[in-house]
């Protein structure tokens, strides 16, 4: 089986995996980073979104073996020194979740949205950009509010 090495949340990691191992399973089962969720498993819901080399991707639809040497950030990699990332803090403050299952993917997508669009983003842009993240509790209103607040906080 191929050895797949990458950098995950700043740490060098490596594991022996079957080529058909998806990135999400590599993260959850080999690295025990279970914050990244499998929701729909059909690349629609976005619960599995992580950053790979700075771009958000759906980790349920990427082979780990194809990401040899990649730089991956998961939800576990956002908080620094015991302090929540501003986007995580904004979700907490604005109650941007109900059951919380979609939240890791929502937050990873939110950080990506701010990285690409800057910290001043209107509601319409946020809603459009969130197309690939589904909340089955339908808690979108507070999620959108949380992202707007998190974006401001990330901007400084």
């Amino acid at each position: 089986m191929p050895v797949v090495s990458m950098t995950v949340n700043g740490k060098a990691v490596s594991a022996d995996v079957d080529p058909r191992t998806l990135l999400v399973h590599y993260l959850r089962e080999n690295l025990r980073l279970t914050g990244t969720h499998v929701g729909c498993d059909t690349s629609q819901c976005g619960a599995c979104v992580v950053m790979v080399n700075g771009a958000s991707i759906k980790s349920c639809t990427a082979l780990a073996v194809g990401l040899q040497g990649a730089d991956v950030t998961t939800i576990e990699g956002l908080a620094k020194d015991g302090k929540l990332h501003p986007m995580q803090e904004a979700f907490r403050e604005n109650h941007g979740l109900q059951c919380g299952f979609c939240t890791p993917g929502m937050i990873m997508s939110a950080v990506d949205i701010v990285n690409r669009n800057g910290s001043k983003i209107d509601e319409k842009t946020i809603r459009e950009e969130l197309e690939g993240n589904i909340c089955r509790c339908t808690g979108y209103h507070n999620i959108v509010k949380a992202i707007a607040a998190g974006a401001e906080a990330m901007g400084g």
Binding site: S43, G46, V49, A55, S56, I57, K58, T61, A62, S109, D112, I113, R116, E129, E131, G132, N133
Partner: peptide
């Protein structure tokens, strides 16, 4: 096409 994460791949 698709959504941002899909367009990234």
């Amino acid at each position: 096409i698709g959504d941002p994460a899909v367009r990234n791949r």
